[in-house]
Simulated scan of single mutants.
Amino acid sequence: MSYEYKLVFDDNSTAQHVIDIVKASSACVRSGDGDLYLKDHSLNSSGAYDTRLIYGDDESLWLQVNFQSAELYALLKTALNGRNFRCLEDGDEDEEVGLNEAFRV
């Protein structure tokens, strides 16, 4: 079962910044059509990816989390360091959660 979140940013450079940081990491196992597929190699999960990051637009990204992962949480937290963002469960404005909740850590 996967969980989906919309990351909404205050400025139009954050989404591309996060994509660039995450794409350069060893966790990125595949990219294409604006999607990044991430794998926490320590989990030894059977899926092709553990988390998918989807480019929404200049001010948002979608995050699909398939498995709990402290490593991928740390990667996203580092990429977002110092940037203002909101994490909305299923993209719902009334369902804001912390990034740690999205990764179940």
Rank of each mutant, 00 (worst) to 15 (best):
D10Q: 06
Q68M: 15
A24T: 13
H41L: 07
Q64Y: 12
N66L: 15
V22W: 06
F67V: 07
L99M: 12
V105K: 11
L7P: 03
D33W: 01
R30K: 15
T14R: 06
A24H: 14
C28P: 11
N66P: 05
D33N: 02
N44S: 13
D11N: 14
Q16F: 09
E59L: 02
A74H: 07
N44P: 07
G98H: 11
V18P: 00
N12Q: 14
Y5Q: 05
G32E: 04
G56H: 05
G82P: 08
L53G: 01
G91E: 06
K23N: 04
L80A: 07
S60V: 01
E96M: 12
C28V: 13
N84W: 12
D35P: 04
L7I: 03
R30Q: 11
S45T: 13
V65A: 05
G56I: 03
N81I: 04
C87Y: 12
L53D: 00
A48K: 14
R52I: 03
A70R: 14
D94G: 05
A70G: 14
V97G: 03
F85V: 00
A79M: 09
T78D: 11
D92A: 12
D90T: 07
Y73T: 02
L75Y: 08
C28T: 14
G82M: 12
K6D: 08
D90P: 02
N44V: 08
F9E: 00
D57L: 06
Y37W: 15
I54L: 05
V22P: 02
S46Q: 14
A70S: 14
S26H: 13
I19Q: 00
A24F: 13
K77A: 11
C28L: 14
I19E: 03
L99Q: 10
L43G: 10
V97T: 00
A27K: 10
T78I: 04
H41D: 10
V22K: 03
K6H: 10
K23S: 01
Y3M: 04
T78Y: 10
S2Y: 09
V18Y: 01
T51S: 11
F103Y: 09
Y55S: 01
K23F: 03
E93P: 15
E4K: 02
H41N: 06
S2W: 10
N44H: 15
L38M: 15
R104Q: 10
K39I: 02
Q64L: 15
D57I: 04
E71G: 05
R30L: 10
Y55P: 01
Y49Q: 01
C28F: 12
K77M: 09
D20E: 15
L75G: 03
E4M: 03
A27S: 15
R52M: 07
G34P: 04
E93I: 12
D11L: 05
A48Q: 13
Q68C: 12
L63R: 04
V97H: 05
I19R: 03
N12E: 15
T14I: 06
V18I: 09
L76T: 09
R52A: 02
A24L: 14
E89W: 10
D20K: 05
N84V: 00
Y73R: 03
G91W: 10
T51W: 11
W62S: 06
R104H: 08
S31Y: 05
S2T: 01
